[in-house]
Write a protein that binds this DNA or RNA. Structure first.
Length: 541
RNA sequence: UCCGCAGUAGCUCAAUGGUAGAGCGGGUGGCUGUUAACCACUAGGUUGGGGGUUCAAGUCCCUCCUGCGGAGCCA
């Protein structure tokens, strides 16, 4: 818990805070804000200061070229500093370590050390907080410091006549993202954003940050992605990451409380799972190995062992996709259920989705508000049932809407948007032509040219967030399918064993986490829905 | 891989073929209630690289590099 032990520079010699010659301290302002979607921006390219960063080479990946560019700008909305005493925030921080006693070897602090999530319990008390300077303003004999501690934001006010010279000097020298310990009397004050304010009487500077790259004005997307590690400090990214975390927790809880067993599928695999997408190849002691693009094939045998199983982890696609709906590395949750038929699968999809959406709305209200998400557009998705539409009917509906396409073709991104726009909640498109779906799917008994497959399309243009199917239990059918798709039969021996030793009906689906999070957050591009996005031409940071 | 757009100050952007500017950030100074504070002054440029047209190119042409958006593919 001792900050001095964890690598942060502590410079007691600077506490008197005389300005050093030749190295003027920057007095930057808040940072980390972002906002406007790239799609609305005007493109400009820019080269990073310091030139190009070194590219990296991995056996299975392209060099991570860095050079910087931006399309579009992101603009920060006026700062709202939320009242962090709200319930979700308190829940979030109930296990926080901020109030733990200091470790031995360090003089104990006189004041209780609290986090911004705990403000309402300490009004009119002398307290200490630790964090980073989010913004800094001066007005004559006043200094306004907006402290950010990872849990919220707090305005701290320093008034010249009320503090010692050292404290005043410290307050004057602060810069954006400098790390500090700050003490004072916590009061309720309507003039302060969030309603609380710290009347400062002590400041300890751990490090004065110089030249923090992310400022309070617009930045291009490329610049921000090159500084993703710092961009995460912004309010908007903070909210998105919290929603992602809550979604992951909710997903695991959903399955764990319904008697599913977690089966971690392997990342390194000997062959393509579905034989379609391009895979990242690496060297496995002289043999080629591939990063997994799906855990599904490994789940089917596990379903025979444990009945109801799921996996949840990263998956990899080496397609050179350049769209807002694609990442090279993304997270997917995949349940697989023995004895579940197609109709049951549809019920599982809608029950799962509606449950997770409800959870996000319940527990992430503060984050959704910060993202200015129109939550009324999510309400319908909390209730079942979801509409079902046969693939053939979907094609007819699209044609009626003026879309040019023929029966037998798959839907493009725009088609999905049009189709989803016909409904107020996710729509389940069923029974696709078998030709355009994966080899392992069960044919429709009424029309063998159709597969018992479902795609769940999210509203508002977020597209396919779930793809699922009933799996074929017929060994001969699968062997023909593998041959038809040009896949190596021997690579699937173990998979086909599921059909040799006690074949059983089973179904499952996969949901892309980033697409789900993007939909919840209302963000236009998947790259903001994952902490460190991996995209074509981007492997840094 | 294909189609389209773009590259100008640290960042975000201006600039009819005719003296490269602004805001933010940085520096100096001012202000007792700021909310991306404000005001004054100030420093800051090989206009992505190369070639060409022209009296004259950030601007027009060719080419390369880089990125963004989309298509395909998919979650």
């Amino acid at each position: 818990m001792c900050i001095r032990r964890v690598g942060v520079q502590f410079r007691p010699a600077r506490l008197p805070l005389k300005k050093r010659e030749g190295t003027p301290f920057a007095l930057e302002s808040p940072g980390g804000s972002v906002g406007r979607p790239a799609s609305a921006g005007r493109g400009r390219t820019r080269r990073m200061a310091g030139g190009e960063l070194a590219s990296r080479r991995l056996p299975f990946a392209r060099a991570g070229r860095e050079a910087a560019v931006s399309t579009g700008t992101v603009r920060l909305k006026p700062t709202h500093i939320a009242n962090t005493s709200s319930l979700p925030s308190m829940l979030r921080n109930s296990g926080d370590l901020g109030t733990m006693p200091p470790s031995s070897g360090r003089p104990p602090m006189k004041d209780p050390v609290i986090t911004i999530s705990q403000l309402s319990d300490h009004v009119e008390e002398q307290v200490t907080l630790r964090g980073w300077v989010y913004n800094w303003r001066k007005k004559g004999k006043l200094r306004f410091i907006i402290l950010r501690d990872g849990f919220g934001y707090l305005q701290c006010v320093v008034f010249r006549p009320n503090v010692d010279d050292e404290v005043w000097e410290a307050a004057t020298q602060l810069t954006q993202e400098s790390s500090i310990e700050i003490s004072g009397k916590l009061i309720a004050d309507e003039r302060a954003p969030g309603g609380f304010e710290l009347q400062v009487n002590q400041i300890k500077i751990l490090q004065i940050t110089e030249d923090y790259p992310i400022g309070k004005k617009d930045h291009g997307v490329d610049f921000l992605l090159n500084h993703r590690h710092l961009w995460l400090r912004s309010k908007r990214q903070h909210a998105i990451m919290h929603i992602r975390s809550e979604a992951e927790f909710g997903i695991r809880e959903y399955f764990q409380t319904r008697n599913f067993t977690l089966i971690d599928s392997p990342i390194l695999t000997p062959a393509a799972c579905e034989g379609t997408s391009t895979l990242f190849e690496t060297d496995y002691f002289g043999e080629p190995a591939y990063l997994s693009q799906s855990g599904q094939l490994y789940l089917e045998p596990a379903a025979a062992a444990l009945g109801k199983v799921y996996c949840f982890g990263p998956t990899f696609r080496a397609e050179k996709s350049k769209t807002r709906r694609h990442l090279m590395e993304f997270w997917m949750v995949e349940p697989e259920v023995a004895w579940l038929r197609f109709e049951g699968l549809l019920e599982l999809c809608e029950d799962f989705l509606s449950t997770i959406v409800s959870r996000i709305l319940d527990r992430c209200a503060v984050d959704l508000e910060r993202l200015e998400r129109d939550v009324s557009k999510l309400d319908a998705a909390t209730s079942k049932p979801y509409p079902r539409i046969d693939y053939g009917d979907a094609v007819q509906r699209l044609k009626a809407e003026g879309v040019e396409m023929e029966f037998g073709e798959d839907f493009g991104g725009d088609d999905e948007t049009v189709l989803a726009g016909l409904f107020d909640r996710p729509v389940m498109v069923t029974r696709y032509p078998a030709d355009i779906k994966a080899f392992y799917m069960e044919p429709d008994s009424e029309d063998p040219t159709r597969a018992l497959a479902v795609d769940v399309l999210a509203p508002e243009g977020y597209g396919e967030i779930i793809g699922g199917s009933e799996r074929s239990a017929d060994l001969e059918h699968l062997e023909r399918q593998i041959a038809t798709h040009g896949l190596p039969r021997e690579a699937f021996d173990w998979y086909l064993d599921v059909r040799k030793y006690g074949a059983f009906p089973h179904s499952g689906f996969g949901m892309g986490l980033e697409r789900f999070v993007s939909w919840m957050c209302g963000i236009p591009h998947l790259r903001e829905a994952i902490p460190y996005p991996r995209m074509i031409n981007r492997l840094y940071p």
